[in-house]
């Protein structure tokens, strides 16, 4: 429960309320994270928040943080040279081994693009290990698109299909308009031979998972990354429970069939 100190070595303002921080260990570093895991980031004297890893490069942690409360406001106000406490990594990761040789379908909504970003990095790093790669991204508006530069760069590649949709467009928008599930319907995948990774707002994930399964992807091959209140991240504080699951250690990445009946119940 003792954080290790990291220093902010780079800061990027992604959106008016969202920043990406690159953190380097001041002294001892945390164990190497698996993709899909999260860290507890500590703002001195303010508190901790669970933040998924948007990347891990040369021992540096990359975290994308949206300002939604006291802790994330403080973290997001950090500038180069500031120190942040890190505990982690915690939780289950995206299991890319099960996707080996299969088509990979990644569905992200809003800030949910951050936790799936390491999947895209892995796909490009070992591109021949996987079949077709499809990334479907939804956002409220074109201005709310996370990692827009990277999305445009990925969209220019010939080894991944990237589709982006927004709930409401601006005149300059040339992409889709509508919910992300509509992109699922026409995604160029071989459904039975596809593993899907889904991250976004919970309601979006439920609809997305249903539409992915409707396309013919086996339900057990659909992975979700869930979000719950967390204080300890080691199964002691009880806050993150969803039925029998401690989302901090049994999740955040869970197979859809395991949580489907739990998410069906309002306020479970």
């Amino acid at each position: 429960m003792t954080p290790r100190m990291y220093e902010v070595v780079a800061r990027r303002d992604d959106l008016p309320d969202t920043v990406t921080l690159t953190l380097a260990p001041v002294d001892e570093q945390c164990p190497t994270p698996a993709i899909g895991q999260f860290n507890m980031l500590w703002a001195f004297g303010i508190g901790e928040a669970p933040i998924s890893l948007a990347g891990f490069e040369n021992g540096h942690l990359i975290h994308t943080i949206r300002r939604v409360g006291a802790v994330t406001n403080s973290l997001a106000a950090s500038t180069t040279g500031d120190q942040i406490g890190v505990r982690g990594p915690y939780g289950t990761g995206w299991d890319l081994t099960r996707a080996a040789g299969r088509d990979v379908l990644v569905v992200a909504g809003g800030l949910g693009l951050a936790p799936v970003r390491p999947i895209i990095t892995e796909l490009f790093a070992n591109r021949s290990s996987y079949g077709r790669a499809v990334l479907l991204v939804g956002a409220r508006t074109p201005d709310a698109l996370l990692y827009r530069d990277e999305l445009e760069q990925w969209r220019g590649r010939l080894d991944i299909e990237v589709e982006v949709t927004v709930d409401s467009a601006t005149p300059s928008w040339r992409g889709d308009v509508g919910v992300v599930t509509r992109l699922v319907e026409r995604a160029p995948i071989d459904p039975e031979n596809t593993t899907a990774f889904v991250c976004g707002p919970e309601v979006m994930m439920r609809f997305a998972a249903v539409s992915v399964v409707d396309r013919g992807v086996p339900a057990a091959e659909v992975m979700l990354s869930l979000e719950r209140n967390m204080h300890c991240a080691i199964g002691h504080c009880g806050h993150c429970q969803l039925g029998p699951e401690f989302i901090c250690k049994d999740g955040p990445v869970v197979p859809w069939p395991r949580v489907k009946p739990l998410l069906r119940v309002a306020e479970r």
Partner: peptide, 18 residues
């Protein structure tokens, strides 16, 4: 067994406890 974690600082913000 459920618990919460609380942070506090002194007035000058130089010392903190969890």
């Amino acid at each position: 067994f459920c618990n919460a974690t609380e942070d506090s600082t002194n007035l000058t913000g130089t010392e903190a406890e969890r």
